[in-house]
């Protein structure tokens, strides 16, 4: 039996979720500390959302241990939820109400007084840059506005722990950056964030620590930079060829230049500590690519290495 250490808000040991025959989460161990931004990365269907729903106390676990804010979700669901903020994958705003009413009515569900929710709604609309749309219906708002409203709504009870399930999916770059900005501010205020995403740049931007999930299990864990160090090289050399010449390069022994090479339909990826010198060696061997690109390894390289390039669903 594990005990919850100091400053650990979420502790899972051997956590399992099954729907009939189907195993959504196959026994994971996770600890989220107070004040950090923690990420769940993984392809669609890896079990991220099921994990989030268990932490949000809206999905009873099948097996294992789970403690949220030091309490048991099965027993203390309402008391835990009173201190959580939840941003679901799909916005579930109340389309029959206005922006302001959405915030007020939601605050009432937490037992806040009418005066409190009125003040809170004004403050949160300011935060989400929605004050001008206060008395508009929700339906015609843009995707980014709806998402900001959903996040504002999740803050109505001043949560200690904020759960964000793919917060920026479907948003344009401007809206994404604005949201990241908001989330960063919350983190600075001491709110603990748990984020699921399949955007690697988002995970690198926001997360102090993350786990990569694949096929309902955790396959890697650590800080983004540590994961890159562990699972990839410092740089990647990308080589493109004229149609048909890629095979010649492979026959010419390009694979021997580096420890790991990936062959894609349109280019070769060479994982290396120094891209420029690898490129020079290749030239020396008489390999003539159409174009070449040296870039730093990213979390995306780690992710694709761990979860593979084929579609999961």
């Amino acid at each position: 039996m594990t005990t919850v250490g100091d400053g650990v808000l979420v502790q899972a040991n051997g956590l399992v979720k099954r729907f009939g025959e189907f195993t959504a989460v196959g026994g994971i161990d996770v600890a989220v500390r107070k004040g950090e931004a923690f990420g769940f990365l993984g392809p669609n269907g890896a079990g991220k959302s099921s994990t989030m729903r268990m932490v949000a106390c809206v999905s009873p676990r099948t097996e294992g241990e789970l403690s949220v804010l030091g309490m048991d979700p099965d027993r203390d669901g309402p008391r835990i939820r009173a201190r959580l903020g939840v941003v679901p994958q799909l916005d579930n705003l109340d389309t029959e109400l206005t922006v302001r009413q959405n915030l007020q009515v939601y605050g009432r569900y937490f037992g806040l007084s009418r005066a409190t929710v009125r003040a809170k709604a004004t403050e949160l609309m300011e935060f989400a840059q929605l004050s001008e749309r206060a008395d508009d219906e929700v339906e015609p708002l843009s995707g980014g506005m709806k998402r900001r409203l959903t996040i504002a709504r999740s803050l109505v009870n001043d949560p200690e722990l904020l759960l964000l399930d793919e917060p920026t999916t479907g948003l344009d770059p401007q809206a994404r950056h604005l949201l990241w900005d908001k989330l960063y501010r919350l983190k600075q205020q001491g709110v603990t964030l748990i984020i699921t995403t399949h955007f690697m740049d988002e995970a690198e931007q926001l997360c102090d620590r993350l786990v990569v999930m694949d096929h309902s299990r955790i396959v890697a864990e650590g800080a983004p930079s540590a994961l890159i160090k562990q699972y990839s090289t410092r740089e990647v050399l990308e080589l493109r060829f004229n149609p048909g010449e890629q095979q010649d390069a492979l026959d010419n022994g390009v694979a021997d230049l580096v420890e790991r090479i990936e062959v894609l339909p349109d280019r070769l990826l060479l994982y290396t500590e120094n891209g420029e010198s690898t490129l020079e060696t290749a030239h020396a061997k008489g390999i003539r690519p159409l174009s070449s690109l040296v870039r730093r390894s990213t979390l995306e390289d780690v992710f694709l290495r761990l979860t593979g390039r084929s579609l999961v669903d």
């Binding site: 809206v58 939820r81 009173a82 939840v86 579930n92 109340d94 939601y106 569900y109």
Partner: peptide, 13 residues
Amino acid sequence: QRLYEGVLATPLG
């Protein structure tokens, strides 16, 4: 509308 999903994320049951 998935209204109740939102409601159940609060203390309400």
